[in-house]
Amino acid sequence: MSAVSTQSGAWAKGRAQTGPVFSCVMTMFNEGPLLRRAAANVLGQSHAALELILVDDGADDATRAIAQEIAADDRRVRLIRQANAGLSAARNRGLEHVRGDYVCFLDADDARPPWAFAAAAEVIRRDAPDLALQRGVLSEVDGDMRRFYDAAHFDRLRELLGENPIETGAAEESMARALAHLIEPQAANKFVRVDFLRARRLGFPNGRVFEDMLFHAMAVAQAARISIIHAPGFAYHRRYGRPQITASSDERRFDAIAVARMTFALLERTPSFADPLRRSAAAAAALRLVRWCESCVGHQHRWNFRMAVRAAMRGVDPRWSVIAADTPLARAELDALRRYAKEVFA
């Protein structure tokens, strides 16, 4: 038995690196010095076969200057400039330019450990999946750090599958894919095979935030094989240092409704819709985000928000209102979401 095994053992022994090549898309707007840190996190990956696509989404001067320095220092960086069009459009723009085997994302205010790509590469070499999902770390405003919100779902996937990927047609596929739908729709937690991305034309809803919900759902629903990487590969920061959409109470929260509706409409054409368990997990994932947004908007918006959710749900298949009792969620959350579904589909 080898003492060093599984994830990236080959790399640790110092053997020559072999594919895959990763393309990391990073958009920037006003991140300033945080951008340098995030870019260093990507460029400092021990798995060096990568390109960093920096999409300048109408960034401020300070951020652009830093991006230019980063691009000048490392030939693996490509800088693409556009007038400000929002996060989704900037990511889509970046996707047009990827030349690697697998694409991933890192927001300029988040972080990756140096082993993230190596751990992913190990799993990708083994499984050659369409999609690989990776665990993460949550950095809290009080300085505490812990496993990301969805650690329990990853734990259950490991119980269910061991180190094996989610396979189409396998006995546990339904539950495994349901769990994958419930993993946080985070951009940094996934590696998507570029051929798969192109074949399915995966992308983000232009002009909208809460964009990850749609991208995550469509990738999970359609990937023939999904690998799970249990070594944490990103850190999501909650901070007071700069305003975050995920901490706002304004009308941008309404985007969650629009994106949920579009996600449902697209998912209706995938195998995740036909299977009641997967469908109910996908519904729970989307409604969870919508409900959270409703609890965050200003009180003056709440009635409007609720009306918009109800109107949006008129445009989707009524079967999305059913969140099954065996959906793998904690009891309290499951009950709350089932009540919410009943209300907004009324």
Binding site: A40, A111, P113, G136, V137, S139, M145, R146, P232, A235
Partner: peptide, 8 residues
């Protein structure tokens, strides 16, 4: 691990 995840 969280420490090394969050810094260069």
């Amino acid at each position: 691990e969280p420490f090394l995840c969050t810094r260069p």
